[in-house]
Amino acid sequence: LRPTKSAPCSPAKPPSGLPRTRSEAFHVVHKVPAGDTPYVRAKNVQLVEKDPDRAIPLFWAAINAGDRVDSALKDMAIVMKQQNRAEEAIEAIKSLRCRCSDQAQESLDNILLDLYKRCGRLDEQVKLLRHKLFLIHKGLAFNGRRTKTARSQGKKFQVSLQHEATRLLGNLGWALMQQNNYTEAEEAYRRALAVSPDNNKMCNLGICLMKQGRLNEAKETLRRVKPATADGDSHLKSYERAQHMLRDLESERINCGGGDRVEQSRLFETFFSSSAVWQPHPC
């Protein structure tokens, strides 16, 4: 009998998705990319050594070296915000985003919106929100796709254009309310609610109407809101705020015995100028 030959055995492979070496395990655990490039060194300092102040100039170096510029700029801006350097982060994005790809522009806009809000730069926030809504209207958002993949707390999920539009309209309404522009804020909330019902936006719409002295409309709007039943309800605070505000205004109107339109207008101006507690709840 001739001995049979068999193919040499291949070394056993680890299960798919598991790191093969200690080095790979390190990168997986710390969420640091492998290699020894300027960007990798910056991420290592940020996530492993946990030295954000030293990581910022390293991200700058990665951008100047052309190494993963999209990620380097976004990461640097986020670290700057965490270090209370939001104004610097805004200027960095504005000056360096021209080096980034088209695919990165939307993410940079989202970071800018957060930074504008942090810095109280409402005019720029409103302008950018309107621009993003314009892109959706023209079919240019999401790089022309109907959905995009988003990430929150490490989990990925799909976001539709419709959902994104209502989110942006809610943020626009909130920003306009901060500017005391209740007429345009009302319009933004109504547009959002026409697409998708939302209790929090409904509460803020009610506040917009009250700020304009339209109590009956506000009361009818709040009547359509489902009462918040638990601390976990997202609209609990805004619902309670709106109801409290409505009760106070109705009480003031009763005490004044109705009065003419000029007197009621003066009443509302006096009430709102002395009450800083009535602020919208962002949605």
Rank of each mutant, 00 (worst) to 15 (best):
M202R: 10
N180Y: 13
R167M: 13
Q153K: 01
F134K: 11
A89P: 05
Q179D: 11
L169P: 06
S265W: 06
G120I: 11
G213Q: 00
A165I: 07
M202N: 02
W278M: 10
L47N: 02
R266Y: 09
L169N: 02
P8N: 05
C203V: 09
P3C: 01
E263V: 15
A175Q: 12
H27A: 04
N64E: 12
K50M: 10
T147P: 00
R54F: 05
D75N: 08
V126Q: 11
K74A: 00
D51S: 08
L249K: 04
H137E: 12
D114T: 09
I254R: 05
Q82H: 01
A165V: 05
A92I: 15
Y39R: 02
P8K: 09
G258M: 04
A150T: 12
A188M: 10
A12K: 11
D233E: 01
H244N: 06
K219Q: 05
G17Y: 11
L267G: 05
R146G: 01
L47D: 08
L58S: 10
K148W: 04
S196A: 07
L236W: 03
A72E: 09
F157A: 11
H281L: 07
D114K: 14
K132A: 00
V225M: 14
A104M: 06
E49K: 04
R118Q: 04
Q46F: 06
I90Q: 01
Q83T: 14
G154A: 08
K138A: 01
F26G: 10
R22A: 15
P197S: 03
G232R: 13
T147H: 14
D67K: 14
S23I: 15
A86N: 05
E263T: 12
E220A: 06
L96M: 09
L112F: 00
I63M: 12
G258V: 14
P282A: 05
R97L: 11
G232W: 12
R266A: 02
A276R: 04
K81G: 00
Q125C: 00
V69G: 06
Q158V: 15
Q125I: 13
R261L: 11
R223T: 09
R253E: 02
L246Y: 00
T4Q: 02
L73K: 09
E240N: 05
Q158W: 10
R145P: 02
E217Y: 01
N84W: 14
R145S: 03
S196H: 13
G170D: 12
K50T: 06
P38H: 04
S251I: 14
P11I: 15
G17D: 06
R68K: 03
P57Y: 08
S71M: 08
V225A: 13
R41L: 05
H244V: 10
Q82P: 00
D233R: 00
R247G: 05
P227H: 12
P227L: 14
L1N: 12
V28I: 14
V40K: 10
D75F: 09
E220K: 06
L122V: 06
G257Y: 11
K81H: 04
G17I: 14
P11Y: 15
D114E: 01
H27I: 10
L18W: 14
T221H: 07
N204H: 05
H27R: 08
I136W: 01
E187A: 01
L193M: 13
Q279T: 14
E220H: 07
